[in-house]
Write a protein that binds this DNA or RNA. Structure first.
Length: 569
RNA sequence: CGGGGCGUAGCGCAGCCUGGUUAGCGCGCCUGCCUUGGGAGCAGGAGGUCGUAGGUUCGAAUCCUACCGCCCCGACCA
């Protein structure tokens, strides 16, 4: 491609709207432009990179035996009502009516549509296994879109759905996808980890997230330093270290705590440690109040609580809501005598004679005990894991790191096929529900994540596999009767050698072209300038290392072909 | 949704507090000269419903009200 013939509107200054690196660089390098909040146009060079990711995904999906199709973006509400998600999905699902006042929505994902296709067209165990995928624009009306392509409302996603005859067969499909995903992200040149994850709204029994490690990650992941365990914070299993306290139950006692409403102030006032106290957090689970108990020095993990309660919407109750539900002002809530539903973290169930709110203004109580002073609906792992907790697999030391979720694989089971009555006839003549799996890759997010991971002060540094061009030729002698033809010959020779090359044939000063080349992040730069006039040599520079070498043009072609081939392995 | 900030030329900003004639600056863009290995220099030029609507006033980018849009933080205190 000729720079003079393409459309790469680079910006010298940082756009005010962008905060994080990938967003800033994509705007500056002319990859994207915003249309409205969370919705972007992909300009030619940005689209080129998106296509690179898509092609890698497509190749690996095909290699794994999946079949590409394309489903509609506009979907009828009926289907979503069948699966029960029209209610459950929440405001992220953009709903609207068409001219006939038919309820419709924009597809944030396609389980319903694919299940509908399969139930209509596949009827026999002989048709399976089957794995269907598409690469398509999705729309999710995010609460707060941010960070450019990282959390947009509209984005490109690859979504695949597998259908199997049995749970065991579905596990095989799952493993196939898991392996395909490892290849995809490795080929994209990303440093990533596959972690155990929460399965969220889509539901299901087993799932892994593929996380790109980057400082600007939106998720925190837990990694074991001593084994292969890695999990999303939301999912990471807390293992009880200490055995249950076997102390004798002491008599319940009321203690006055005037004006002391927080864990810290109560502890300071009573001269105790937060670990001796249980805090009572009230949440509104789909509109109903629930109290969750956790040790004073712990934090509730909201996702764990949501899953335990089976709730769609879970928010902390406001002061007024708490008072309306319990008759107690916040700060003095405790389990003993509380009239709403109570669930407890496993750690609380192991505690004896602890402190808690007295359910009366300015009072707490001591020597509270589960079973004697209160009952709970459920005991479960409800708290956030910490680096002091042992690895649930090997007992080793845990570390925390930030990550960007770029892929997610789920084993769905028969949830959708049952709700939507999708069945096939098995060998034995029995009608059975399809056992499903679903597998997503955030294509546009991969692009953002790659930049987060690969950049410097001068701009992007693309891995060769994702680079819009592998090589940029900087022609420093447009008007020169020696340099210009040499640069042009190098360009056509590289093209002929199958190298993806951009030639900067603009009538601009050298510094200007160098800055743009760096900003765009093209892995190799070949400068044809006055050096060529003197010695017949061109300068080859690697973007990542900054290393430069002088060589003859023919040599440069061979060198570049080698390096590119090497890096595409 | 709660909190904060911002909307003035394609981009980045000043002007607003304390209202007053042709609304500025840098970058970018156009023309010419000059220059050519890290975003040059000089000269000339084009480009703006000051987010929208209403109000106050002789007069509004500036003051008031409402609305719209965008960005950031939070939604893990009890």
């Amino acid at each position: 491609m000729r720079y003079s013939k393409t459309f790469i509107p680079t910006l010298k200054e940082n756009p005010a709207e962008a905060e994080i690196i990938s967003h800033r660089l994509m705007l500056r390098a002319g990859f994207i432009r915003k249309l409205t909040a969370g919705v972007y146009s992909y300009l030619p060079i940005g689209l080129t990179v998106i296509r690179k990711v898509e092609n890698i995904v497509r190749e690996e999906m095909n290699r794994a035996g999946a079949l590409e199709l394309l489903m509609p973006m506009v979907q009828p509400a009926d289907l979503w009502m069948e699966s029960g998600r029209y209610k459950k999905y929440g405001p992220e699902l953009l709903r609207f009516q068409d001219r006939h006042e038919r309820e419709s929505c924009l597809g944030p994902t396609h389980e319903e549509v694919i299940t509908d296709i399969v139930r209509k067209e596949l009827h026999s165990y002989r048709d399976m296994p089957v794995n269907l995928y598409q690469i398509q624009t999705k729309f999710r009306d995010e609460i707060r879109p941010r960070f450019g392509l990282m959390r947009g409302r509209e984005f490109v996603m690859k979504d695949a759905y597998s259908f199997d005859v049995s749970d065991e067969a579905a596990s095989e499909s799952y493993v196939k996808m898991y392996e395909a995903y490892k290849r995809i992200f490795a080929r994209c040149g990303l440093d990533y980890r596959a972690v155990q994850a929460d399965s969220g709204t889509i539901g299901g029994s087993f799932s892994h997230e593929f996380m790109v490690l980057a400082e600007n990650g939106e998720d925190t992941i837990v990694i074991c330093n001593d084994c292969e365990y890695a999990a999303n914070m939301e999912k990471a299993t807390v293992v009880l270290k200490e055995p249950a306290d076997s102390a004798e139950s002491l008599p319940l006692e009321k203690v006055e705590t005037p004006g002391k409403r927080t864990v810290d102030t109560v502890c300071e006032f009573l001269g105790i440690e937060p670990r001796q106290l249980v805090k009572t957090m009230v949440y509104m689970a789909d509109g109903k109040p629930v109290a969750a108990l956790v040790r004073g020095d712990r934090q509730i993990e909201k996702v764990k609580l949501t899953n335990l309660l089976g709730a769609t919407e879970l928010e902390m109750a406001g002061e007024q809501e708490v008072f309306d539900a319990t008759g107690v002002p916040t700060g003095y809530l405790g389990p003993a005598g509380l009239k709403i539903r109570i669930v407890a973290d496993q750690e609380v169930a192991a505690m004896k004679n602890f402190y808690a709110g007295g359910n009366e203004k300015n009072y707490h109580v001591k020597n509270v005990n589960l079973g004697r002073d209160f009952e709970v609906d459920a005991v479960a792992d409800l708290r956030e894991i910490t680096t002091d907790d042992p690895c649930p697999e090997c007992g080793g030391r845990l570390g925390l790191t930030e990550g960007i979720e770029v892929g997610h694989v789920f084993k769905l089971g028969t949830g959708y096929s049952e709700k939507m009555n999708a069945t096939f006839q098995d060998k034995d003549g029995q009608e059975k529900h399809f056992v499903m799996g679903c597998y997503g890759v955030g294509v546009t997010r991969v692009v953002a994540a790659a930049i987060e991971q690969h950049h410097d002060d001068n701009g992007i540094i693309w891995p060769v596999a994702l680079a819009p061009y592998s090589v940029v030729i900087v022609n420093l002698g447009i008007q020169d009767e020696v340099i210009n033809p040499a640069a042009e010959k190098l360009y056509s020779d590289l093209l002929a050698a199958g190298v993806e090359v951009l030639i900067d044939d603009r009538d601009e000063r050298p510094g200007f072209k160098f800055k743009d080349a760096d900003l765009l992040g093209i892995p190799y730069r070949v400068t044809v300038g006055k050096g060529f006039k003197k010695s017949g040599m061109v300068e080859v520079r690697e973007r990542r290392s900054g290393e430069t070498k002088e060589m003859a043009p023919e040599e440069a072609i061979a060198f570049l072909q080698d390096r590119i081939r090497e890096q595409l392995q």
